[in-house]
Computed example of a mutant assay.
Amino acid sequence: MVAFEVRWCALGGGPAETIMADFGMDAAAFFRYLAEYLELSPPTPLRPDLLERMKAVARRRVWLAT
């Protein structure tokens, strides 16, 4: 999930269709899970600025889905 989002982060996150095909969940569930994971257990190899950008994208996509 993290590798997928690193690739798509600059574009606002991945397309819902690709998320469904790759992960078997809708985009809202994907970004809720990702936001929680990044908050509770952030991957250490990520630069802090990229981590914050990924969190922001995940929060925005969850917000857009509600």
Rank of each mutant, 00 (worst) to 15 (best):
A65H: 10
M1Y: 11
L51T: 09
F4R: 15
E52I: 01
K55L: 15
L40M: 07
E17W: 07
R53N: 05
D49Q: 13
P43W: 08
P45D: 02
A29G: 05
W63E: 09
E17R: 10
A21V: 10
A29S: 09
G24D: 07
A58G: 12
E17L: 09
T18N: 07
E36V: 14
D49K: 11
L40I: 05
A21N: 14
G13M: 13
G24Q: 04
F31S: 02
I19G: 03
A56D: 02
L40E: 10
A10Q: 13
R59I: 04
R7Y: 13
T18D: 10
V6R: 07
A28V: 05
E39Q: 01
F23K: 03
D26P: 03
S41M: 05
P15K: 14
L11P: 00
D26L: 05
M25H: 00
R32W: 00
D49R: 14
K55M: 13
I19N: 05
Y37V: 11
L38R: 00
A21R: 14
M20G: 09
M54Y: 04
V6Y: 01
A10K: 12
E36A: 14
L64D: 14
P48V: 11
D22A: 11
A28R: 07
G14C: 15
K55T: 08
D49G: 00
L64R: 15
A58H: 12
A3W: 08
E52D: 13
L64M: 15
R53C: 12
P42Q: 02
A28W: 02
F4V: 11
V6L: 04
Y37E: 03
D26V: 03
G12R: 09
L38C: 01
D26N: 15
R61I: 08
L40R: 09
A21M: 11
L40V: 06
A58P: 08
F30K: 01
M54C: 03
C9Y: 00
Y37F: 12
P42M: 06
V57I: 09
L34R: 09
A65G: 06
D22T: 10
R47P: 00
A16S: 11
